[in-house]
Design a binder for these strands. Structure first.
Lengths: 211, 211
DNA sequence: TGCTCACTCGACACTGTGTCGAATAATTTC
DNA sequence: GAAATTATTCGACACAGTGTCGAGTGAGCA
């Protein structure tokens, strides 16, 4: 694999190969709106990008590699929303948790097809699995850390369950709800309901119920 | 599709076809321990069952149909654990919820490969999707119903979120945790931790924190 | 005995994958 | 700016898997 992704805004002139790779990625993202990754044939990718099928293998090792590249574009945004809860200021927990969850939901709405494909592919592709376990690790870690801070401050309900175990199920719950939410028709009302429900469960699980 | 699944314990003599279908199902369940459904080729199924590849299509329409038959065998057990919470007696909620969740985890431990394959296939196969949305419906419905009972009795935290929305995220959380749990090595300690954590989240989400 | 029906098989046409070597375009070197 | 090098593209090929068809085979039954 000699292809190296150009950072956005790089001054380096785009070579022809970069353009082709980009075209493949764009085609892939578009096709994922309709079908799952393994229903997409290589020649759909390449004819969408205006090249012959065998040229695909010059740019990517496999369809999974395409997905991996696609995921990296998207996942950066996820970290931002994850960081939102961590280091909340004097703001009440409800606000920062809601904001974090809301950001995650919005990202899934924007890139649902890619994220769903990536989630599915972690059972199949070693690269994607490693990639996602890293993502999950960061989420769980920063959540657990925050739970511990709140517990030490006497604000959160003490364990068991351990901060880490609790963080794991909460993060996993968010992911699975975002996954299925992104399958349905876009609906602001439904989005809001899911955000509120998830927020309520996070609050109750971590802080208990006020009053 | 002329094949009809024999109810267990039926007195009807097993025809040769039943035996072959059964052999295919057994082979499939065994292969699913190692690979995902779409990595399993039809001739692996049939050579495992000692017949030629094309004979497969006499018994099943597709690999998905095999999975569907396999799921039905397994899912009956799920309903039992779901029913456990509903209609708890005078028993404290913690007990009945823990027992229900524990039963679900045990079932996923026993039949993880089949259940995982079924979950994955709902994005692909129409039949499987319908099948699972029915399963999920039953779970969510009975959970929501129980939440409402507890709310009316003044024991549970009142909404919002609505009983139904709350039930949806809790059920989905359980499923996604069972899925990933069943991917790891079997460990009684880990199982117990997950059951305890899920139970804690259910309790806090529905009833709030005691004391 | 001959009929029927459940069941099995091999052959075939088709779709998609991944690799190879040759051809061409772009870039660098002198 | 010609030659050498490197990047990119292509068509052809070998291979693997799918699903269908028509022709068997054999067990039970009229």
């Amino acid at each position: 694999m000699m292809f190296v992704m150009n950072r956005a805004g790089s001054r380096r002139r785009r070579s022809k190969g970069d353009l082709t790779s980009q075209a493949i990625l764009d085609t892939a993202e578009q096709l994922l709106e309709t079908k799952s990754l393994d229903e997409i044939a290589v020649d759909e990718l390449t004819s969408g990008a205006g090249i012959s099928r065998s040229t695909f293998y010059f740019h990517f090792e496999s369809r999974e590699a395409v997905l991996h590249a696609l995921s990296e574009r998207v996942v950066e945004g996820l970290y931002d929303s994850a960081a939102l809860w961590l280091r909340r200021g004097s703001e009440p927990p409800a606000e920062s948790i809601r904001r974090a969850i809301s950001g995650t939901v919005a990202l899934w709405r924007a890139h649902g097809p890619v994220l769903r494909a990536a989630v599915r592919a972690r059972d199949t592709s070693e690269v994607v699995r490693g990639f996602w376990s890293e993502v999950a690790r960061k989420f769980v870690e920063s959540t657990a850390q925050q739970i511990e801070i709140e517990r030490d401050a006497g604000v959160a309900v003490p364990g068991p369950p351990s901060a880490r175990a609790l963080a794991t199920v909460l993060v996993s719950m968010n992911e699975s709800m975002c996954y299925s939410l992104s399958l349905g028709r876009k609906s602001a009302a439904r989005d809001r309901e899911v955000v509120e429900t998830l927020t309520a469960v996070w609050l109750r699980a971590v802080y208990g119920v006020p009053q």
